[in-house]
Nucleic acid binder design. Structure first.
Lengths: 197, 197
DNA sequence: TGAATTACAGACCGATAGGTCAATAATATA
DNA sequence: TATATTATTGACCTATCGGTCTGTAATTCA
């Protein structure tokens, strides 16, 4: 983000707004599946402007992934920490998110999952960013689980959280492959038995 | 596969052998991440030979995915149905597969998962093939689970199988992002409580 | 042995990829 | 108002992309 009142011609677009558009492209199409021309079309910016503002395509992808973290991961973590709702509801809502998206006919899945499958093996920075996202989700999920399981120690809480993040990821991936909602949704109450036996 | 004793010059390579090499490339690099030049390098075949034998790049990808089904998915299904081993062990081995791979420093993940994240949203045939793979895994996993839970009805068995497939996928994806094995492996016994309470 | 058929090698194709550059426009500051 | 600084534009660059074509080699069958 460039300073307002900086010398020189002011930027005509908002960095974050553009990164959100770019995020949606990469989210849906993957790294190689999105060309700079597609980004130019979507943002209305010229190649050189993109390059000056964000760097090359790799940097663009990584910044889109960071934007996803700030928007989606942080949002999910906040919801999991919202103590005004019952802990059980919060966990359930988290696991239901993949199915809710599918109900709205959004089978884009989760950008972290897609990036992991797509680029984690090829680019260390992407790998690191994806790992960080999963860790954030795990830590956030640990809070309501700890409320539900006050007797358990931290390690056991984190293990359960990781298992549920696995289920979340699995549902995201399976939804994307077009498996029917009716088949998948019964896995949510099934997985919930891990926190409410 | 071309007929032996067909008229004309005989093919100098084995189709399946080449498809396995191509499978490994797409598995690791994704659809757009693998160029025809890379495939030529790996297989030693010329572009025109590839095209004549398998079709265009899309067909090549789809046939690689089919090869994965025949080699890996069918293999996993067979292991899950191997009644000479205890049902509990078979389920446990299935869930451990993602971690075993990581222990051998193989973080390639699962081609079905990668294909789902990479291409399911873009190509209906890929989507269909991925769905079929997940369904095969689910059905195969249902066998040992049914042995462990004779009192449960089929719907409930399949639900549990789907939840465990989710965990499997989640572990595959998380392993690929570089999360530590020590952190992930405790999720296996945790998930096993769904079949052995 | 000749005709038909298929495979192989490698040059070739237009399109597009990511990236760069020089000219011009818009602003802050002196 | 002049200067420095940054942004924008659109042409331009080279490399590579997926795909095709042509000529030659290898085989079966009559």
């Amino acid at each position: 983000m460039r300073d307002r009142n900086a010398p020189g011609r002011p930027r005509e677009f908002d960095d974050t707004e553009m990164l959100r558009k770019i995020m949606k492209l990469f989210w849906k199409g993957g790294y190689e599946g999105v060309s700079l021309s597609a980004i130019m079309r979507e943002t209305g910016l010229q190649k050189a402007s993109l390059y000056a503002a964000f760097g090359d395509k790799r940097a663009l992808y990584l910044k889109a992934l960071t934007q996803y973290h700030e928007d989606v991961v942080v949002g999910a973590a906040r919801a999991l920490n919202d103590t005004s709702r019952p802990a059980l509801h919060r966990v359930e809502a988290f696991l239901n998110a993949p199915l809710d998206a599918a109900r709205l006919d959004d089978r884009t899945g989760c950008f972290l999952c897609n990036a992991s499958a797509d680029q984690a093996d090829l680019d260390p920075a992407t790998k690191q960013q994806v790992k960080r996202g999963f860790e954030s989700l795990t830590r956030a999920l640990a809070h309501p689980i700890a409320e539900l399981r006050p007797a358990h120690d931290e390690a056991s809480i984190l293990t359960t959280a990781r298992t549920l993040v696995s289920v979340y990821i699995g549902l995201r991936i399976m939804v994307r492959s077009g498996l029917s909602l009716e088949q998948l949704e019964s896995s949510v109450p099934n997985a919930m038995t891990l926190v409410s036996p």
